[in-house]
Computed example of a mutant assay.
Amino acid sequence: MHEINLYEKKIIQDKDFPVQIFENNIREIRTIFSEHWHEHIEMHYILDGAAVFLCNHKPVYGKAGDLIVINSNELHTGVTKTPVFDALVIIFELDKFSEEIVNYNMIFQTLIESDDKIKRLLLEIRKEDSEKKLGYKLAVKSDIYELLTYLMRYYVVESISDKEHLKRNRDLDRLNTVFQYIQKNYTEQLSNQELAKVVHLSESRFCHLFKESMGQSPLNYINEVRLQKAYLLLQQKELNVAEVAAVVGFTDYNNFGRLFKKKYGFSPSEVWERIGTMHTTTN
């Protein structure tokens, strides 16, 4: 079986320009990117449309003009909520830009809504990267420095100690084995005891570690994974809603519908019907 690893090691080749800039231009309601985590800072500035981003499985709803900041070592994925979705994505190695932020282990606010200064800086970065005129790398780096300074002063929600930072990294790395196991076996009825054995911990110690790291119980996390898989299956429109619920591991159809609507803001049948309407319109 192909090994599932949610850790993504981004390698930025240009040491003088340790940043990746690109746009997501999506014309359907679907997953933007599969769940993963890495040590880099990732920013999504929404140019058009709306989406829900899941950071450590906590939903963050963004619309045009909003900035989504994915802090380092956060599990994250995203799903569009509108048929038209455009976003500017910037991924960079924080330690190459600011030892000050790294040293203070700053955690930025995940959702920043309609900030005019952030909008100006990000659109300047987009323009410089698009035109690539002489000196554009310097201009982009300058704008990123200004952006980071602004975020440090107004949008830091937490600064953690080196000890806590290292502990969080170790815990997430340890739990990565559990995440992989869940991704392979989410259709089964998994127990806390079974998951605890994967990382050689007692059930109580495992549950405490998981809740502390993820902010939710293992069962809630498993259901989140199932819901993500269900969304993808509904988009394919090969199975009806009841079949999808059963395939991803839900034994209670009503509970599946309730959890799905709570997570995405609409029912499973609405996704199924919407995809069907879109297919009919485009054919």
Rank of each mutant, 00 (worst) to 15 (best):
L239I: 01
A246I: 06
L232Q: 12
L232I: 09
Q228D: 11
L234R: 07
A245Y: 01
V244C: 09
V244W: 05
N223R: 15
N220M: 02
S217C: 08
A245D: 05
V241G: 13
A246T: 12
A242C: 04
N220H: 10
G215L: 07
A242Q: 11
Y221T: 13
P218Y: 01
L232S: 15
Q235H: 05
N240M: 03
L219D: 13
V244K: 05
V225K: 15
Q235F: 01
V247F: 00
E243F: 01
Y231T: 03
L239T: 00
V248Y: 01
V241W: 02
A242N: 09
M214H: 08
L233S: 05
Q235N: 15
V247N: 04
E224C: 09
Q228N: 07
V241H: 05
E238C: 03
K229A: 11
E224F: 01
V225D: 06
K229Q: 14
L227I: 15
A230E: 09
K229H: 07
L232V: 12
E243W: 00
L227S: 08
L239V: 02
L219Q: 15
V241M: 09
S217I: 08
N220I: 00
V248S: 04
G215E: 13
Q235Y: 03
K237S: 10
K237W: 00
P218Q: 07
L234P: 15
A242G: 03
Y231S: 10
N220E: 12
R226C: 06
N220R: 14
N240K: 09
A246F: 01
Y231N: 14
Q216E: 14
A245K: 02
M214T: 11
L233P: 06
R226N: 07
V248I: 11
A242W: 00
L232F: 00
V225R: 15
Y221D: 13
L227M: 10
G215M: 08
N223H: 14
I222L: 11
Q235E: 12
L234N: 13
L234A: 08
A242H: 05
E224Q: 15
N223Q: 12
V225T: 14
P218W: 01
N240W: 00
Q216C: 12
Q235W: 00
